[in-house]
Amino acid sequence: MSNNPTPLAMALSQRKSEERATPLSAFRMARRWWLEGRRLNLSLLAEELGIGRATLMRWVGNKDLLMGEILWSLYKGIYDQALERANETPGLEGIDYLAQIYNDINVALIESRPLHDFMHNEPQWSLQLLTSQVAGLQQRLMGTWKDLFEKEIAANNINPEMDAESLAFYIIKIGEGAIYCDLICGRQPDPGPANTAFRLLVNGHTR
């Protein structure tokens, strides 16, 4: 019988050294924990990854920035899906196109169980991250909506009285007030008024 190791045995022996932690694997593990409803603990995360806490901090910056990346990944996924649905809806254009995207995003955020759990378990921290510039989330939200508004303005699909950057700022603030404040207080948010306000702000009328 041969004593030479099989390819499987060699692969298994090398797996541990090959599966070294990286900044991306740290993000993925942190995101998975958050989606499961676990609190984000950097010391435990570093221990699970098999690295020092200082290394993890060098990778992610700080706890706020790491959580900002997780929240952005949630929002970006929801936004991309809403955009795809709107693009696939025949005859949808102008304010109706934009309002559908906005409403779909708000509904998805309202129905997000990880977001509910986060705001229930850590209300002060979650509200700070979601409604301020501390984690870089707001800048990304504004940039995403600003680009979309500029595209629709350039195509003459909408003719708002505000510039795209101002529109982006205010529609994000409307969403924050309509969703996060109610979630913090334990109320079920209603996306309807936010959608009406969106139409008024972007196009000057509700229909």
Results as ranks from 00 to 15, higher is better:
G91H: 06
L74S: 02
F118L: 12
G52V: 13
L167M: 05
A135N: 09
R39F: 04
Q128V: 15
R140T: 14
Q124S: 13
D163I: 08
G68V: 04
K151V: 08
A108T: 03
M162L: 14
P123Y: 00
I184L: 10
V60D: 00
A21M: 05
A26K: 00
E36T: 07
H205M: 05
M162N: 10
N62F: 08
I70A: 08
M10L: 14
I184K: 07
N195H: 11
D163M: 05
A86G: 05
Y180E: 02
Q128K: 07
Q139I: 13
L56P: 00
N4E: 14
E122M: 08
W145H: 06
G68Q: 03
A108C: 04
A155Q: 15
E152Y: 12
G136H: 06
L83Q: 05
E88N: 08
A26S: 03
A46H: 01
A46S: 10
A86Q: 10
I158T: 06
L137H: 03
E69M: 13
D64E: 14
R31Y: 15
P5E: 03
I51C: 03
D104G: 04
W125Y: 06
I153C: 06
S126L: 05
E47F: 05
S126E: 02
I70R: 01
L24C: 04
A197N: 06
R85W: 12
Q128P: 01
L200D: 02
H120K: 12
S126T: 02
A99N: 06
D96W: 15
L49K: 04
D147F: 11
F169G: 06
L8P: 02
T6K: 06
K63T: 08
H205R: 08
N121Q: 11
R85D: 08
H120A: 13
E152S: 15
R58T: 15
R199G: 00
E150R: 04
L137A: 09
I172Q: 09
R20A: 15
Q128C: 08
L83F: 08
R113Y: 15
N121E: 12
G50V: 15
N121T: 10
W34N: 06
Q124G: 11
I172K: 04
Y79L: 13
I51M: 00
W125A: 12
I172F: 05
T89D: 12
R39P: 11
N62W: 04
L130Y: 00
L12D: 02
A108W: 06
F27R: 00
E161Y: 09
E84T: 15
M57W: 01
D163W: 03
C181W: 11
A86Y: 09
R187Q: 14
M1I: 07
I95F: 11
H205A: 08
L35E: 15
S43H: 12
R31M: 14
I51P: 00
I105C: 09
P23C: 02
A99E: 11
C185K: 13
E150D: 10
R28M: 14
R38D: 07
V134R: 08
K151N: 06
D147R: 12
W59Q: 01
I171D: 00
N41H: 12
N3V: 12
T6W: 06
R31H: 15
E69W: 09
E111A: 10
A108H: 03
I174T: 06
M29Y: 07
L45G: 03
F149Q: 02
R53N: 13
E48G: 03
P90N: 03
V202M: 03
L109F: 10
A154P: 02
P123H: 01
F27W: 10
N3Q: 13
I70L: 14
L201T: 05
A82R: 02
